[in-house]
């Protein structure tokens, strides 16, 4: 090659210091790019991982509640890491409640009156999400959007053969408002359980009122519950609401009619209320 024949010609214009500077600049530019773009991406990944872990954790807690309520296990304990946000228990006496449920056939026959479920709420400012465990369901909303979704459904069901509707309401209680960030143990104990079995004559519609506070710090999961009532439970929304009960000015309400499996047969309406006591977070 030419280089071997004429060394001077080959290395003309080549300087060690300029080469070093070029390489050094490339290294610094590389580090700079990684810091500028890579680091925020890492943080974002961390936030979304925290969010996903918390979604899974809430489903684990929902399973604990299922064991307490449906399998009459007296006590459950789960250790979890709450990352990127805070887990808080708002007991059923907390105001404003995230929702209120009333089940009735008319103004006299009310089976559940203004039921407050209380909720176990995970709020993450960095991920911009709220995940709430309420009434046996896990629901989630984003701070910048008005809607909400159901991550895990509660266990309400119809039995076609006996024409029975079973509605499970879970009431979370705690001595005080507790909250937790970081590693903690959620201790839950089963409190009072009561159930009512109501025989309702054929053809009488059963209504459910779902009310939320208008000014509830954004804790409005009515979209999620609306989806559950209409798509899963096949209820029918009554517009405008025909509810016989007075509506407080700070609340809004939706009225649903429960699906009749067989309108020609009498319906058995079973309403179970479980009290789950959160001992610690």
């Amino acid at each position: 090659m030419t280089c071997e024949k004429n060394r001077n010609y080959c290395t003309a214009g080549v300087s060690e210091s300029i080469g070093f500077l070029l390489i050094f600049t490339m290294v610094i530019a590389g580090i700079g790019l990684v810091t500028l773009y890579g680091y925020p991406m890492l943080i974002q990944q961390q936030t979304s991982a925290d969010d996903q872990i918390m979604q899974k954790n809430m489903i684990v807690l929902q399973n604990d509640i299922k064991s307490l309520a449906y399998k009459t296990v007296p006590y459950k304990e789960t250790s979890l890491k709450v990352g990127g946000g805070v887990l808080t228990i708002h007991n059923s006496a907390y105001t404003p409640a995230s929702s209120e449920i009333t089940i009735y056939t008319d103004s006299v026959n009310t089976y559940v009156n203004s039921f407050h479920s209380g909720d176990l709420l995970y709020t993450s400012v960095s991920a911009g999400t709220d995940i709430s465990l309420q009434n046996g369901a896990v629901v989630m909303r984003r701070h910048d959007q008005p809607g909400s979704i159901v991550l895990a459904e509660p266990r309400w069901f119809y039995d076609d053969q006996t024409n029975t509707v079973v509605i499970n309401l879970v009431n979370l209680t705690s001595k005080e408002i507790l909250s937790r960030a970081g590693v903690g143990t959620v201790q839950m104990a089963l409190g009072d359980v009561n159930y009512t079995k109501n025989d309702i004559a054929a053809g009488i519609p059963i209504y459910l009122d779902y009310s939320t506070y208008i000014n509830s710090d954004g804790q409005d999961y009515s979209f999620a519950w609306d989806n559950y009532f209409i798509n899963t439970m096949k209820m029918k929304e009554i517009v405008p609401s025909t509810s016989p009960f007075p509506l407080l000015p700070q609340m809004k309400r939706k009225t649903y009619e429960l699906k009749m499996v067989d309108p020609l047969r009498p319906v058995t309406l079973v309403i179970k209320q479980y009290e789950v006591n959160i001992r610690s977070l």
Partner: peptide
């Protein structure tokens, strides 16, 4: 109340045979 399950059943005895139906639904 304990298993959160709707159970319905019926049974009949005729002669030396007993037969029936069981229905169980827990959601």
């Amino acid at each position: 109340s304990r298993q959160n399950a709707v159970v319905s059943f019926s049974n009949t005895t005729s002669g030396s045979f007993t037969y029936g139906e069981i229905h169980y639904n827990n959601g």
